[in-house]
């Protein structure tokens, strides 16, 4: 091997090593909000019409970030979501770790559910949580059914629970929300 060739190989190896240096950004602060009152949002949910929420670029950003998901898990316990939904298995509120969604299981739809509340007993968290926190919660809620990428799942243990860690669960398909589900009549 010529010395030029060796030098090139060394440079390539160094480049390959550099690519492993991509560290996750920890964003502790969402974008500042403008000093104006937000316009009131109205639920677009109507009987017979599937819940549709515009795609939001934040969805991917939050869902692919371990830190955000881990914060979501912290809030899930601290805000007592677990009081109604248990650790995903459901209680007074529906299970969140199954593949069924009454109001849709995308990041945007879950944020809308948390923000607006839902008629059969899900309180609205608007003004009680920041938007950033709702996105963090949505990312964690999706991890309960192993939707997000496996390598970003939170390693924080679910308090006193003996369920298998999310990192060991298998990926499940997303089931699109159905109008029938909205009325709670599916199956």
């Amino acid at each position: 091997m010529s010395s030029r060739c060796r030098a090139r190989l060394a440079a390539l190896a160094a480049l390959a090593l550099l690519s492993a240096c991509d560290r996750e950004e920890r964003q502790s602060r969402a974008q500042p909000v403008p000093e104006t009152l937000p316009t009131p949002r109205q639920s677009i949910l109507q009987p017979g019409v599937p819940a549709r929420t515009a795609a939001d670029p934040r969805a991917r950003a939050y869902e692919n970030n371990s830190y955000q998901m881990s914060q979501g898990q912290l809030l899930y316990q601290k805000m007592n979501c677990s009081g109604c939904h248990a650790h995903g298995g459901g209680g007074m509120g529906p299970a969140l770790s199954d593949a069924e969604w009454r109001y849709g299981g995308s990041m945007e739809e879950i944020v809308a559910t948390i923000d607006q509340g839902r008629p059969n007993g899900m309180p609205s968290w608007r003004g009680k949580l920041t938007e950033q926190q709702m996105w963090q919660l949505a990312a964690y809620v999706r991890s309960l059914s192993a939707q997000p990428r496996q390598d970003v799942l939170s390693s924080r243990p679910d308090a006193p629970s003996s369920t298998e860690p999310a990192t060991l669960q298998s990926r499940q398909p997303v089931v699109p929300s159905s109008p029938a589900g909205v009325q709670g009549t599916s199956r």
Binding site: R26, S28, R29, A30, P32, V33, E35, Q71, L74, T130, Q132, Q133
Partner: peptide, 19 residues
């Protein structure tokens, strides 16, 4: 005004009050 600026990463969120 900005807990995350003073103590980055702490568990009190940036809320964003106007003046």
């Amino acid at each position: 005004a900005d807990p995350q600026g003073v103590k980055p990463g702490n568990n009190m969120p940036y809320i964003g009050f106007d003046s």
